[in-house]
């Protein structure tokens, strides 16, 4: 379902990223998802102590979180390209206005809590 993106990057940035991770591959499957332990920890906080979470649910949420980050990045990227800016700085607030029109009210909660 979720494919790891393998797009090329600048030489300088590539070097820095490669130094941090293994030099063999730029994108590993591990790097495309957030750690599942952190995800399950947050989920458990929201549920009573007697409830359990299936492993497939955790893995599914792992993919959902990755898709959420990609979704926000795409919205912000479109805004930046429209205004010819290349830095994601305070554009997260602009994502709020965009998503508000598309009934994305829950993201509004995230940034204004």
């Amino acid at each position: 379902m979720f494919n790891a993106p393998a797009s090329p990057c600048g030489s300088g940035r590539g070097n820095h990223e490669s130094s941090e991770h293994s030099p063999r591959s730029y994108f590993r499957e591990q790097d495309c998802f957030l750690p599942i332990a952190n995800i399950s920890c947050i989920m458990k906080k929201m549920l009573p102590s007697n409830r359990k979470i299936a492993k497939d649910a955790k893995e599914t949420l792992q993919e959902c979180v990755s898709e959420f980050i990609s979704f926000v990045t795409c919205e912000v990227s479109d805004k930046c390209q429209g205004e010819k800016r290349k830095t994601i700085n305070d554009d997260c607030n602009r994502t709020v206005t965009v998503l508000k029109k598309e009934e994305g009210a829950f993201i509004m909660l995230f940034f204004h809590l």
Binding site: P5, S7, C9, R13, F27, D31, C32, S70, T73, I88
Partner: peptide
């Protein structure tokens, strides 16, 4: 993950 989505960003 963000750079994977848009490398120039």
């Amino acid at each position: 993950m963000i750079k994977g989505e848009d490398p120039d960003m």
